[in-house]
C-alpha cells in the first residue's frame, strides 16, 4: 500500500496538501487540470522533490529510507523526461539490464519489435508516439510493486493508446498485488483502465470514487431555475450555472430518475465531472 499522510509541499505560487492511500492490486487514475499537483505528487513519491511535512510510505517503509533494493521495485514513466535522446532502444536495453536485476531484456526487445520501434535508431529521430511507447515499454519490462505513469499516453493516436493501455492491463494481471498510479488528460484512458479515480485541484484531492461507480451512478441533471429551487439537493455534489438554468452533478442517478421522471439526466465523462467539481459551486 502507498500511504501519503499529511504531505505538504510549498512553492511560491502553489501549495500541495495531500493525504491519501492507494491499496495494493489497484490501478488509480489521477485527473486534474495543468498545474493541479499531479506531477508534484508523483515527484514526492519518487523522491525527486523535498518536503518539510508529511510521510510517504510504500508497504510500510518510508520512501526517504529507500535503498537500492526498494527503489528497484518502483517503475515510472515521466511525461517529459527519459534517457538522453542520443540513445537507441538497444542502448537503453543495455543500461536497463545493468541497472535493474529484474529487467527482462528479451521481453523488452520483443515488445519494441511488436510495436514497430526501430532498435538501432536514435530516440531523437522517433515520432512523439514512438517515444511515448518506448518509455512505457521500458517501465513495463521491470518487475515492480509500484508503477507510476505520468501522462503515459501523451502524443499517442487512439490505436496506439489502446495498445499501451492493454499492455498496462496485462502487466497488472501478471502480479495482482501491484499498485499503478496513472495521470492522464484523456478521460477515456482513466475510464477504461482505472479501478479508482482521484481528482486533484489546486494541490488537494477534491474527490475520489470507484471508476465503475462514476460511470454507472454519476450523472448530470439539467434543470431550469424553478426546478433547481424545488430540487432535493441531498445527492447533488456540485452545480454550475448554465444558459438554460443549472447543470448539477449527482452520484445517485437512480434516485433522480425515479423521483423526477421528466428531468433531463445525462451520463458524463470524467472530464465533464471535473469541470463541474472544479468550476461549479458546492452544495
Amino acid at each position: 500500500m502507498i500511504k501519503i499522510d499529511g504531505l505538504k509541499k510549498e512553492y511560491s505560487d502553489f501549495k500541495l496538501d495531500i493525504s491519501v492511500e492507494f491499496e495494493n492490486g489497484t490501478i488509480n487514475g489521477i485527473v486534474g487540470t495543468n498545474g493541479a499537483g499531479k506531477s508534484t505528487l508523483f515527484k514526492a513519491i519518487l523522491g525527486l522533490i523535498s518536503y518539510k511535512e508529511g510521510v510517504i510510505t510504500i508497504n510500510d517503509k518510508n520512501v526517504r529510507d529507500f535503498k537500492y533494493d526498494d527503489k528497484e521495485r518502483i517503475g515510472c514513466v515521466m511525461t517529459d523526461s527519459f534517457f538522453s535522446e542520443t540513445f537507441s532502444i538497444k542502448d537503453i536495453a543495455a543500461i536497463m539490464k545493468a541497472t535493474y536485476k529484474s529487467f527482462n531484456r528479451d521481453a523488452f526487445i520483443k515488445k519494441c519489435e511488436e510495436h514497430k520501434l526501430p532498435l538501432n535508431k536514435k530516440i531523437r529521430d522517433f515520432s512523439n508516439g514512438m517515444k511515448a511507447k518506448a518509455k512505457v515499454l521500458c517501465a513495463l519490462s521491470i518487475d515492480t510493486d509500484v508503477l507510476i505513469l505520468d501522462e503515459p499516453t501523451v502524443g499517442l493516436d487512439i490505436i496506439a493508446r489502446d495498445e499501451i493501455l492493454s499492455e498496462i492491463r496485462d502487466y497488472m494481471e501478471e502480479n495482482e498485488n501491484r499498485i499503478v498510479l496513472i495521470s492522464s488528460h484523456i478521460s477515456s484512458d482513466i475510464e477504461k483502465l482505472c479501478d479508482t479515480t482521484y481528482m486533484i485541484n489546486d494541490g488537494k484531492i477534491v474527490f475520489h470514487d470507484d471508476t465503475d461507480r462514476l460511470l454507472s451512478d454519476y450523472a448530470a441533471l439539467k434543470v431550469d431555475e424553478d426546478s433547481f429551487e424545488k430540487l432535493d439537493k441531498s445527492h447533488i455534489m456540485a452545480y454550475k450555472k448554465e444558459k438554460y438554468g443549472y447543470e448539477c452533478l449527482t452520484d445517485e442517478k437512480e434516485y433522480y430518475s425515479e423521483n423526477y421522471p421528466s428531468m433531463v439526466i445525462e451520463k458524463m465523462t470524467v472530464d465533464e465531472m471535473m469541470m463541474i467539481i472544479i468550476k461549479g459551486e458546492k452544495v
Binding site: 519518487l46 515510472c76 523526461s81 538522453s84
Partner: peptide, 18 residues
C-alpha cells in the same frame, strides 16, 4: 550535459541509485 538534455535528470534520479 547529456543527462540534463530533454530534462533527463528527473528520469535518471528515478533509477534505483541514490
Amino acid at each position: 550535459a547529456y543527462d540534463e538534455m530533454n530534462k533527463g535528470m528527473s528520469f535518471i534520479m528515478t533509477l534505483p541509485y541514490s
